[in-house]
Write a protein that binds this DNA or RNA. Structure first.
Lengths: 219, 219
DNA sequence: AAATTTACTGTACCGGCGGTATGGTTTTCA
DNA sequence: TGAAAACCATACCGCCGGTACAGTAAATTT
């Protein structure tokens, strides 16, 4: 009962690391059980097939990520009453979190799964999609709250800005790994943070006529 | 000679689609040769092993992508002498290109490879890294050129902004796939475009003292 | 036209892996 | 103490990556 959950957790941990390093298709059950120190029968006692392992990995990853976001948004709100300030704090905390990982971010399971979609059934894909939507919703809510206090610059859809943050994180992870530099992700989150600051700062053109050279840059 | 290149190309095309849908590890040679209508011996005549297939896929993808960037940057420069304008045009063209794909962007091979790095030898990973660096360099050069005419807003490193574009593309592809909405990628590129416009437009704080509520948002 | 190279096909084989089946054993908890 | 939980052991199937080697039709060169 108790020990079963432990073994299950160990399997998931080992499998996740393997999936993020080699992909789901190349992750062999034999390898996982060898590292976990159990037999094949033991594995199939916990997961009836590889697809159920995938689903469990997915759910575990989403839960963990939700916890992190809960925490970091909560702390942001604690440290300031101003919605813009607290979101900026949240972003800063996230950047620190990502930068402090010893060997860089281990990778986003959602990203690996969307790039191996044909390996999973519809339920797994739907779980992933709804998780992504929920995270995007979080960011969008934070932005909307800010926009109710600070009018945003024109020409930017806040829904797109919210999604862009997810893009920057997933893209940042890929860039960090691809370039072999774990700090890229942290810098990207901070760059997005600067973008948010910029987005809610009034433009010169909102107040006075632009100088000649900015007329070219405008719409 | 001629026919060999054709077959090779057909193999690469089929393999690429499979890799983007299932991952490299889950792409079976048997499946590829079945679809290509050749035998296993035929396959190993062209590629001595799976790793060589990976390398060929990589090089082909980079070449194709370089061609696209060459074209779209060239057309941007043709349509305006102003570096900011021509980059904005380039981004618009790219967004259109990505939006016009019938079933959405097929996926970024670099992204799949970085998420399956343990499957490839160092040469393949180095090729990918240098390609990414080269693309980031293109964006950074374009931004630097703009910055020499239009002073950029403070607090943003242009290197980071350049990398952010790569992040937005790769992240946008993941979001498009994960959410099942091909238009997300196009919208993300356009959102980044708005960001660039904002970046080179003067802020109110550069000209006059900010109103009370923006003082909170500042550094 | 002959010789050579290119671009394959056919067959046979190996070991590893995902997955199933089945029966047994220890551990844990009520 | 007894049942349920959490495994272990063994055997087996079919697919796949990869190797080896022998043969051949077509294109290209000489």
């Amino acid at each position: 009962m108790r020990k079963g959950a432990e073994t299950r957790e160990r399997i998931l941990e080992i499998a996740e690391a393997s999936v993020l390093a080699k992909g789901f298709g190349a992750t062999s059950i034999e390898e996982v059980i060898a590292e976990a120190g159990i037999t094949k029968s033991g594995f199939f006692y916990h997961f009836k097939d590889k697809n159920e392992l995938a689903r469990a990995l997915m759910l575990r990853y989403i839960e963990e990520n939700d916890r992190i976001f809960d925490d970091v948004f909560h702390r942001g709100r604690q440290l300031s009453d101003d919605p813009l300030q607290s979101f900026l704090i949240t972003l800063k905390l996230l950047a620190e979190l990502m930068g402090d990982l010893p060997n860089g971010h281990p990778g986003c399971l959602i990203a690996t799964f969307t790039y191996q979609e044909r390996l999973f059934d519809r339920t797994v894909r739907d779980i992933a999609a709804s998780a992504v939507r929920s995270w995007n919703g979080r960011f969008r809510d934070a932005l909307n709250e800010i926009a109710s206090v600070y009018p945003a610059r024109k020409g930017m859809d806040l829904d797109d800005v919210a999604i862009m943050f997810s893009c920057v994180i997933d893209g940042g992870i890929i860039m960090s790994r691809g370039l072999g530099d774990p700090r890229v992700l942290e810098r990207q989150i901070l760059a997005f943070r600067s973008f948010v600051k910029m987005l809610f700062a009034p433009a010169a053109s909102d107040i006075m006529l632009p100088p000649a050279h900015t007329a070219v840059a405008a719409e």
